[in-house]
Amino acid sequence: MNGVTTGAQRVATIFRRELASYFNTPLASVFLVIFLFLSGLFTFNIGGLYDRGQADLRPFFQFLPWLFLFLVPAISMRLWAEERRTGTIELLVTLPFTVVDLVIGKFLAAWAFACVAIILSAPLWFTVAWLGTPDHGVVVASYVASMLMAGAFLAVGGCLSALTKNQVIAFVLCVVACFLLLITGLPAVQDYVAGWSPREVAEALASMSALFHFDSILRGVLDLRDVLYFTSVIVGGLACNALIIQWRKAD
């Protein structure tokens, strides 16, 4: 009996297995605990949530990209490197899946996991809502921005993980790539670049930065351009990922 499967079924099969693998291992619990602990630390001790006397979640969201810088590569590094190391990639590729099924299924599972972590910070939101009257629209937009940013980092990291069977290399490459996406959006870096290059170059560089678009959404407006930026990084990352797997299945 040979069951014919639809694309959605195949992606769902990969998604389920991937997501289960986070919870089969201590990865999920370790990740969630550390994420919540560090985000709390940043929000209260460094961001000074209480001291500011303002009912908003800016201290939390402001530090999130820098937390993602190390935590998202920790999720993405194993996406493909692990399959290569254990040889299970040979199984995946010779089962009736297309490379696109595999790439999308794995990405969606990793993204869903990251979104769960982000959503688990909601008690912070409830606390602020209880203490004062935050602008809930801004909070919702900020949550969307955080999820988009996590997705963009994961797509980039998945791509880099496909290049190697060594998870440490995949981690380091992803941290560097995400770091570049972040620092080009820092005002200090922009000023520095503007000091010796035409204004257009500095602006172009800033508009390619994840931090620039993230901050823009954090101000409270979910601009189509910012959403488009993150979705194009995600789609571009996944497309590269599929090409790498297609060309270098067996290496």
Partner: peptide
Amino acid sequence: AKRTFGYLPEGAPGYPDM
């Protein structure tokens, strides 16, 4: 074509945590 066969790759790889 992949539906027609069953394949045991060299070394019988599987997911260790499953």
